[in-house]
Amino acid sequence: MLSDAERREIEEDIKAYADRKMGCVGALKIVQRHRGWVTDEALKAVADHLQMTPDELDSVATFYPLLFRRPVGRHVILICDSVSCYNVGYEDLLGYLTKRLGIGLGQTTEDGRFTLLPVACLGVCETAPAIMIDSDVHGGLEPPEKVEELLKLYE
């Protein structure tokens, strides 16, 4: 079931579109914002709401790296592993983060604070290496110790 707030936000978002289905990525983002990730139950509720079948909607949900179909921590760190970052210190940054957080790519810290995932070029290659935490992009992380100041902002 969708909460009242979720339903309201989805309806508000859909107004911009000619067809309800066009709002499906936006609707999935809304439930993810409320619940942290897109659960099977939420997926089914959104599908009903948009008059789509659950598998039709899941074919969309599983396509996008910014939609999470598995549980994630309170904050998601997406580390860019594309070519400009690779050439300017990606491996050092990844090494630092995995050591500092005690997790590898695709894992969540035991306290549920951070999930670490790889992501494609974040479009800030002139300030490589870069990461995105939740919806904020941060570049210039060379040397990797610079990430310490950032982590403090995401309790």
């Binding site: 066009m22 499906c24 990525v25 948009l50 789509m52 969309v60 996008y64 790296p65 939609l67 494609a120």
Partner: peptide, 21 residues
């Protein structure tokens, strides 16, 4: 607003994406 994925930039993929496919 999309949600990532390079393929969405290919113009016919983009059209499917915006149609909710």
């Amino acid at each position: 607003m999309s949600a990532g994925r390079y393929m969405c930039g290919e113009e016919t993929g983009l059209i499917n994406s915006i149609e909710g496919k």
